[in-house]
């Protein structure tokens, strides 16, 4: 099958490649670009482990072909840290609040939370839970992920983080 030429911006860098039309975006990112942060958990667009930010939207890259992303601006977990190399508030929040265990869902979860906070910079717990419902976690029970996102929101808003009382 003839390959197609694609060009896209990934984490601020322009990449060009020849891909088979059936190459999934997740495989392109992981195998060709060796960005192995986004993971494959279900392959059927349920788990969200493959989530990347594409043209300002959270997208499950297992359910999109690389050719469809031609011309897109993509950000993965590898592009999440601040320009000076320090951790993004979300990355910091996940560690501070113990929002991860095995780490497999974390890149997708952080990437999704990034877009959520772009759209709503001070979400309630309910809004956070609804906003990350496309990402499954098998380890944490989500409670500390919610706190991690609240931590990040507070930090980005420049206000002290107050843990909700038990």
């Amino acid at each position: 099958m003839a390959k197609s030429q694609v060009a896209m911006t990934v984490n601020g860098t322009t990449v060009e490649a020849l891909v088979e039309p059936r190459t999934l975006l997740i495989h392109f990112l992981r195998e060709e670009l060796r960005l192995t942060g986004p993971h494959i958990g279900c392959e059927t667009s349920h788990c969200g482990a493959c989530t990347v930010d594409l043209n300002g939207k959270s997208v499950k890259s297992c359910t999109m072909f690389a050719v469809q992303a031609n011309g897109a601006d993509i950000r993965t977990i590898e592009g999440m840290a601040n320009p000076d190399g320090t951790l993004h508030a979300l990355q910091e929040g996940f560690r501070e609040m113990h929002g991860l265990q095995c780490g497999f869902c974390t890149p997708g979860m952080v990437t999704r939370a990034y877009r959520l906070l772009q759209e709503n910079n001070n979400p309630s717990e309910e809004e956070i839970r609804f906003g990350i419902a496309g990402n499954l976690c098998r380890c944490t029970g989500y409670q500390n992920i919610v706190k991690a996102i609240q931590y990040a929101a507070a930090k980005l808003n420049g206000v002290p983080f107050q843990e909700a009382a038990e």
């Binding site: 992981r30 195998e31 960005l35 942060g37 986004p38 977990i77 990355q91 560690r95 780490g103 497999f104």
Partner: peptide, 21 residues
Amino acid sequence: RKRVEDIRFVQGKGNYVDDLK
């Protein structure tokens, strides 16, 4: 204690089997 392993996981730098090529 904050977890040691998180530093790599939150940056997408975990090393899982399927990452191996």
